[in-house]
Simulated scan of single mutants.
Amino acid sequence: MGIVLGANQYGKAETRLVHVARAGEPHTLTDLNVSVALAGDLADVHLSGDNGHVLPTDTQKNTVYAFARQHGVASVEAFGLLLARHFVDSQEPIHAARVRLESYSWSRLGPHSFQRDGGEVRTATVTYDGSTATVVSGVTDLVLLNSTDSEFVGFIEDGYTTLAPTTDRILATAVTARWRHATADGDWDGSYAAVRSLLVEAFVGTYSRSLQQTLYAMGERVLTARPEVVEVRLAMPNRHHFLVDLSPFGLDNPNEVYFAADRPYGLIEGTVARDDAPAAGLAWW
Rank of each mutant, 00 (worst) to 15 (best):
V135I: 13
G118T: 11
V88L: 11
V272A: 06
E256K: 12
E102C: 06
V195T: 14
G130A: 06
G190H: 07
L55G: 05
D41A: 01
L5T: 12
V121G: 09
S105H: 14
A13Y: 02
V244P: 01
A225M: 02
I268P: 02
L215S: 01
D50I: 09
A273P: 00
F249S: 11
G6E: 10
A39P: 05
R116Y: 10
I170Q: 12
L234W: 05
S150C: 11
Q70T: 12
S107K: 05
S147R: 05
T176D: 04
V64Q: 07
A78H: 11
G2Q: 13
A133S: 07
S75M: 03
E102G: 09
H112C: 06
R239N: 12
R122Q: 14
A193R: 13
D245I: 09
T183N: 02
P248G: 00
S35A: 04
A96R: 14
A97D: 08
T127M: 07
R239H: 10
V195H: 03
G186H: 09
Y128R: 06
N8T: 08
A283G: 15
Y207L: 07
L109W: 07
A277R: 07
R239V: 09
I170K: 07
T206I: 08
R169F: 03
V36E: 08
F67S: 00
A283V: 09
A164F: 03
L234D: 14
S48A: 05
T271G: 07
H241T: 12
S137L: 15
H240N: 11
R116I: 08
I170P: 07
Y265V: 13
S48C: 00
W106I: 00
A21G: 00
N238F: 03
D44I: 01
N238E: 15
F87N: 08
A37R: 14
E201F: 04
A68W: 04
L83G: 01
L199T: 03
D149S: 08
E92K: 07
E25S: 12
G270C: 02
A273C: 13
